[in-house]
């Protein structure tokens, strides 16, 4: 009897609540093979929350998330992350190189400073995203697309096997978008799983191998062409969400819905 390899990323009956209010209900999702995987859905549907739950950034009140069959704490070095751009203060006094080097901190630990090996790796990652000439520039002096590529380079510097990206293309010009996607496709071709929270249906249909449709719960998942059907899209975007929101409110207030 052959053993089945654990999925690269598995969400098992995951429910996420902010305070007491559930925002993601019982998500069951397993990604077994490396691919370019899109998480699609309306605004506020919980797509970013799903990613944050995987990384332990928001608490999971039901179920669990596993990477390669293990909890995140055991395999942190194999998971790379690109957070949303709005969370960052672009006036911060760091250079592009400083930011990319932060990707190496996971392996360096607390006390060691980045050395030659880390700097070479950082330069290589900057090269892959096409920013090597800007290494010494302060990050506030970059365009939106360039800033996003710096974050991508930082994630690449983590040398991970799974990459989770939260809206990496929001507010980015079309040329940069294509550039970023080319890099992501290269990463996938190297045998890594790339999970991207994405807002644009049209480009999603073009770029992703597989997608998951999320609207406070998992509506459908599978190969892109199979999932992005008019019926599924209607179920997601036309929303039966008011029900979930009302129940969520009732739970938060410890009462009942009317």
């Amino acid at each position: 009897m052959t053993a089945v390899a654990a999925p690269i990323l598995e969400f098992h009956d995951v429910t996420v609540a902010y305070g007491r209010r559930p925002v993601l209900w019982n998500v069951d999702l397993a990604i077994a093979e490396p691919c370019l995987f899109g998480v699609i859905g309306p605004n506020g549907a919980g797509k970013s929350t799903l990613l944050k739950a995987a990384l332990g950034l928001v608490p999971v009140v039901g179920g669990y998330v596993r990477f390669f069959g293990a909890p995140l704490d055991r395999v942190r070095g194999r998971v790379g992350y690109v957070p949303q751009r709005e969370t960052v203060d672009w006036d911060f006094p760091v250079s592009v190189m400083d930011v990319v080097l932060m990707g190496t901190y996971g392996r360096l630990g607390w006390l060691r400073r980045p050395g030659r090996r880390e700097r070479d790796l950082a330069r290589h990652c900057l090269d892959r995203v096409g920013l090597v000439g800007l290494a010494e520039r302060q990050i506030g002096r970059l365009s939106g697309g360039q800033q996003q590529r710096v974050f991508l380079a930082r994630a690449l510097a983590q040398e991970a096997d799974v990459y989770l990206l939260d809206e990496p293309l929001a507010g980015v010009d079309v040329r940069s978008q294509e550039q970023i996607f080319r890099v992501l496709a290269e990463v996938r071709d190297q045998g890594k799983l790339v999970v991207v929270v994405h807002h644009d249906l049209r480009t999603a249909a073009e770029w992703f191998d597989r997608v998951a449709l999320i609207d406070m719960r998992l509506v459908a998942t599978g190969p892109t062409a199979d999932v992005l059907t008019p019926d599924n899209l209607r179920r997601t975007y036309a929303g039966r969400v008011e029900l979930l929101e009302e129940i969520g409110r009732a739970v938060a207030e410890r009462g009942r819905t009317p």
Binding site: W25, D28, L218, L243, E246
Partner: peptide, 23 residues
């Protein structure tokens, strides 16, 4: 939701206390 049968009971176990007549 794309949930297998054996995943339906736990969520219902806690939601059952929060549903009112109209819902």
């Amino acid at each position: 939701a794309e949930l297998p049968l054996d995943h339906l009971h736990p969520p219902a176990e806690w939601v059952e206390h929060h549903l009112g007549a109209a819902m």
